[in-house]
Design a protein around this nucleic acid. Structure first.
Lengths: 233, 233
DNA sequence: TAGATTGTTAATCGATTAACAATC
DNA sequence: TAGATTGTTAATCGATTAACAATC
């Protein structure tokens, strides 16, 4: 049976649905329509119905989706039935924030280890776990059979960390360092890259057209009077 | 002159090109082909050429792109010629990490203010700036004509912060809180949502097909023996 | 039954890939 | 000139939107 693998865009929306369902359930809402899910999520109702339909028929025509039932299905689809153990490499401000957030606010994930190379940070307590030297990571990865790892180290250390964790069995990396990690193709990397988000936001924060048209004017000038040389190397 | 607004996917790739060019320039590389940019970025060479072509003809047939020239163009396109002043709201671990990162590692951005509601954090020094109470934000936004704001507060406080900063003129928000912010349509919001990234990664970290097919089996069973009721409301 | 909302198919839109002429 | 690589047009692919029959 071919699944032709569900598209990445669909998968990225599932956690949004899950979060909304968790909220609705907390508020005691039992039924939700795709229309209301739409206004909560910002995705269109059609898209939501289509996304869910990839995995099954979870709703009831005429009324909507049972929140508890749908939540349970999405939890299964994503693979969150049991808590996912992870480690965080890098115990600076960002690594600390990530560790603490996941330990306290993310019920689907547990952090079983935090690591750093910096001796000054080793021994530091984050919530209930202690920062260990990077060399201890391999042991923990194997002990807990860790498949998912967060990397929050400086750009120049990230590849080395990726190599290490992948070597010991990690299959998915959430990378906060601004570098493209090179990993075997069976390993998944998601980049959570602040700089890229911020810069693309800056693009939209000022009048787009003006900037681009002044750029075009410049190009015209350059056409006639070459200022740059292209002949080295 | 219609620009039909360049697509978001293109804009998200520009900062990646910029980063690579910055690296290449630092290493003294003067010319780079789309092929080599491809291997550095992970995007295809065709895509890179097409992306750049939306804005102009920046390369030289037969040789490639002059790194300094192309960098300068991308800086102009994104709107990074002058440093962008920003503020960070939320001075917990994440807000502190973001503030420090941008102050020390991101030459295109300057943080002119950090704010929090928590009295325990007010007065705290992050690098060279001091955490101020949230009420002071409006003043700083107006004083520096801030257009871009980072929000790193807990989910339940994020909307209130968004309302405040938008009211005083912010046009672009990088939101780290796990909520959909409601803002006027001229305001841009990018969500940097750890939980979504992490959960979609978890989806890929274990055998997709097995999970989905066991889900399908369940659905079949449910078809005959209904376990859920849909008639409350 | 009438009203509502899903699940699914078809139509559209947009983005990526392929191909190649232009040109350094 | 021969070799290389861009810039651009055309072809393909994939994702979103629209429409509506199915059905609660």
């Amino acid at each position: 049976m071919r699944n032709h693998s569900i598209s990445k865009s669909v998968i990225k929306r599932l956690p949004v649905y899950l979060r909304i369902l968790d909220q609705l359930i907390r508020r005691g809402v039992e039924i939700i329509s795709s229309k209301d899910l739409s206004s909560e999520s910002g995705f269109t109702a059609e898209q939501i119905r289509k996304d869910l339909a990839y995995f099954g028929a979870f709703g009831t025509r005429g009324s909507g989706y049972n929140t508890v039932f749908l939540r349970e299905k999405i939890v299964k689809i994503i693979g969150l039935e049991s808590v996912t153990d992870t480690i965080v490499v890098g115990a600076g401000n960002l690594g600390t924030a990530l560790t603490r957030y996941n330990l306290t606010k993310n019920p689907y994930v547990n952090v079983v280890g935090a690591f750093d190379k910096n001796p000054a940070l080793i021994g530091k307590k984050i919530h209930n776990i202690e920062v260990l030297p990077l060399e201890k990571a391999s042991k923990i990865i194997e002990k807990y059979n860790i498949k998912v790892c967060l990397i929050a180290v400086p750009a120049d250390a990230a590849q080395e960390v990726a190599d290490l964790v992948v070597k010991h069995g990690v299959k998915a990396i959430l990378n906060f360092a601004p570098v493209k990690l090179r990993v075997p193709e069976e390993v998944h990397v998601h980049n959570a890259d602040l700089t890229i988000e911020l810069q693309s936001l800056i693009y939209y924060s000022s009048a787009e057209e003006e900037r681009l048209s002044s750029l075009k004017d410049e190009m015209k000038k350059n056409k006639s009077s070459k200022t740059f040389t292209y002949n080295e190397k």
